[in-house]
């Protein structure tokens, strides 16, 4: 074999090797480019998801806040107007039951009988049993 043949052979091998490396780099570059596109698409999807979730939660929070405001107003109105009226009504009925004992059984359906009876022998109200209507609670004093 001639030395020139050897040189040509090694040059061909080097060219082939170089061509293989270039092809691998191109392939790698293409893969990275694809990966980058996928990453950006995923980011866009996540941003859209987070934005949609934020908008949804914002609307829900707004709705719940409005309901809380309405219920607070309702409870406040109850405390300031209805409770004093109920308390006044109850006291008057208790006084009335003291003067008219035949009304006491009616009132005892709703209030603890020890609250309005003058008799010291009155037993405390029994615990409400199943199926029995609960009595009204003590109304808070102002």
């Amino acid at each position: 074999m001639e030395p020139s043949d050897n040189m040509n052979h090694s040059q061909d091998a080097a060219n082939g090797h170089s061509h293989g490396e270039t092809s691998a780099i191109d392939s790698l570059r293409e893969s990275v480019q694809t990966l980058r596109s996928l990453f950006q698409a995923t980011l866009v999807a996540l941003v859209i998801l987070a934005g949609s979730l934020s908008i949804f939660l914002l609307r829900e929070v707004s709705l719940v806040r409005q309901q809380v405001r309405e219920l607070n107003q309702f409870a406040s109105t109850y405390e300031t107007t209805t409770v004093p009226m109920m308390r006044d009504f109850r006291y008057k009925l208790i006084e009335f039951a003291r003067l008219n004992p035949d009304f006491a059984p009616i009132l005892s359906k709703y209030f603890n009988p020890t609250n309005f009876s003058d008799s010291p022998k009155v037993m405390p109200a029994p615990e409400p049993r199943e199926g029995q209507a609960p009595r009204l609670p003590e109304l808070p004093e102002n």
């Binding site: 980011l43 996540l46 941003v47 987070a50 934005g51 979730l53 934020s54 939660l57």
Partner: peptide
């Protein structure tokens, strides 16, 4: 995305 996650 970070801001969206914080807001959420």
């Amino acid at each position: 995305l970070f801001l969206g996650a914080l807001a959420t």
